[in-house]
Design a protein around this nucleic acid. Structure first.
Lengths: 105, 105
DNA sequence: ATGTGCTGCAACCATATAGTTGCATCACAT
DNA sequence: ATGTGATGCAACTATATGGTTGCAGCACAT
């Protein structure tokens, strides 16, 4: 299971550039250098972002000869979504409970 | 519908203190001052966090006499979760497609 | 052997963020 | 009328973050 801490995942997803990187990786695995070709930031900046994403468990890296390719882990996104969903439902449930009480049912 | 921009929502959720605030609000609506009583930061810090959360559409505020109470909007969490889920599935789908191709099916 | 291209590390800069203190102000109750 | 408790605003500090440049090192192909 991919039970990473939730907060770093959200923090990682809270940056536009990282979404650009994820989107670019959606086209297929790519190295930091390759990504630097299609994004308006330097390779080093991308490397830092990839480190953050990897730390959050959102991408994995694989060596291919002298290059380091990155791949998106969609499962981690789904997992995070499920956990967020249940939290959201929890709050909704609580609110409905309060509403029912308020309405005297 | 609560179609807020996705990134600010994640950014808002990418902070421990804000989760503490959300958790505290789960106990019931509360003002910044009230929250400051149960959290280890000052009222002003909490007020800033609440502004971020409100900007992201995660909480709403309601005036009650001289105090400003905040309430969690669970629906926004669920909405965000759904959008994240579909993105995650999208990536999974793509990966399975690649796998099928690689396996010659 | 050597040049090219990719990674890795370090220093550096600017801005954003999380937090603080201090003070003015406004509403409510006595 | 006045005190108390809440919000609102501003200034300030420290650290984190997103970004840069520069350089060293390593792997691959010719």
């Amino acid at each position: 299971m991919t039970t990473s801490t939730l907060v770093p995942v959200f923090a990682a997803l809270g940056d536009e550039t990282r979404w650009s990187i994820l989107a670019a990786l959606g086209e297929g695995d790519a190295s930091a250098s390759a990504l630097a070709g299609s994004l308006p930031v330097t390779r080093q900046a991308i490397a830092k972002h990839l480190a953050v994403l990897q730390e959050a468990g959102l991408v994995e890296s694989l060596r291919v000869g002298r290059e380091l390719r990155y791949r998106v882990l969609g499962a981690q996104l789904s997992e995070t979504a499920r956990r967020l969903e249940s939290i959201g439902n929890e709050w909704d449930r609580r609110l409905s409970a309060i509403k029912r009480i308020a309405e005297g049912l």
